[in-house]
Design a protein around this nucleic acid. Structure first.
Lengths: 172, 172
DNA sequence: GCTTACCTACTCGGATAGAGCGTGTCCGAGTGTAGTGGG
DNA sequence: CCCACTACACTCGGACACGCTCTATCCGAGTAGGTAAGC
């Protein structure tokens, strides 16, 4: 019962990408710098999000990542499943029928009750994750977090998103 | 997001131990045989359950394991936490404040919204697991499973539990 | 025949190797941009 | 002065080592029971 630490990075990046405007992108290197992570390794997780159709990637100069759809339609479950894989955490190995005195296969048509209970709990987990939309994460951050932190994040996005808005003032 | 397969073995063993009567015990070797597992490795997990005060172990001949309290008071959550560890699956590394432009610590007193959402989902998971009592697992198995499977399990327990009830007929 | 001491066999418990997966890093393919030469 | 070509710099994408956790195993410590000898 342990999630890879790439999940945290993926969610933070997705939340940051929710702040870019329109067709603009944010490069993986910029996000890695923002969170103090290894750029090469972050790319690995961002690539998984691209493969899951959560992010879009554009190559070349002024390239980077953007959300593939609105933050309203992206849930934490989407991100977690993309990074950690879709199979359930508890996999029933059917050890009940692996003993030396196993019965006929017809005695095991009913599903294992233990498996059912574990899967039910995991369904509750996924349901809670599916109810957490990325847009909620962002709006909660905007309203609840420290104003300095919000301002810093918005400034970072505005400075690194590309193509730069021509109207905005260029900062060093 | 992956649970070790020891969890499955631990739950099955606990369910089987719920079938022994009174002070009787079941040896780890017997349970390993019942499920086709390596005895030495199963001991490792059973030992964790003992350390968590879920099982009691008695040494020596006619020794083995028994439940430390009634199956009514043991939940799947107890077993999962004992085997997999008590720390949550999602550990917030606070990467939001690890970038090069981190603000004063006072800007991060509010908890991370992403961490809160993930922990909320995990609370739902644990709640569902805490509602699944071991006694429910056993009674559901007794009523729903194939009668042959139930009979085989009961026979196995009766044959291997020790000290043997003197009144029961000895089987080869 | 009863008691007692010893010995054996069986159990759990912790310490010890091996495999699989997540972590971290590197280099190559692709693309848009900027500069330069020619018309 | 305008256009086309070339070279470059920057991006993502996949292939390659390393470390750690989970898996699997072995051997030692401890204990209860059975056995045999002594009273």
């Amino acid at each position: 019962m342990k999630l890879g630490e790439g999940v945290e990075a993926a969610i933070h990046c997705a939340a940051m990408l929710a702040g870019v405007e329109g067709e603009a992108t944010l490069s993986g290197a910029a996000m890695a710098e923002a969170f103090g992570l290894s750029p090469s390794y972050l790319l690995k997780h961002l690539n998984m999000l691209s493969a899951a159709r959560i992010l879009e990637s554009v190559s070349g100069p002024a390239g980077g990542y953007r959300l593939a759809r609105s933050a309203e339609r992206i849930t934490l479950l989407d991100i977690v499943l993309a990074v950690e894989g879709r199979e359930p955490a508890f996999r029933c190995g059917e050890i009940r029928q692996r003993g030396p005195a196993k019965l006929d296969a017809s005695a095991y048509v009913k599903p294992c009750g233990i498996n059912a209970a574990m899967l039910k709990a995991e369904r509750a987990y996924r349901t809670a994750l599916a109810e957490a939309k990325l847009s909620d994460i962002v709006s909660d951050f905007m309203s609840d977090a420290d104003p300095r932190s919000v301002a810093a994040s918005c400034a970072f996005v505005a400075r690194h998103q590309r193509p730069q808005k021509s109207s905005s003032t260029k900062q060093a």
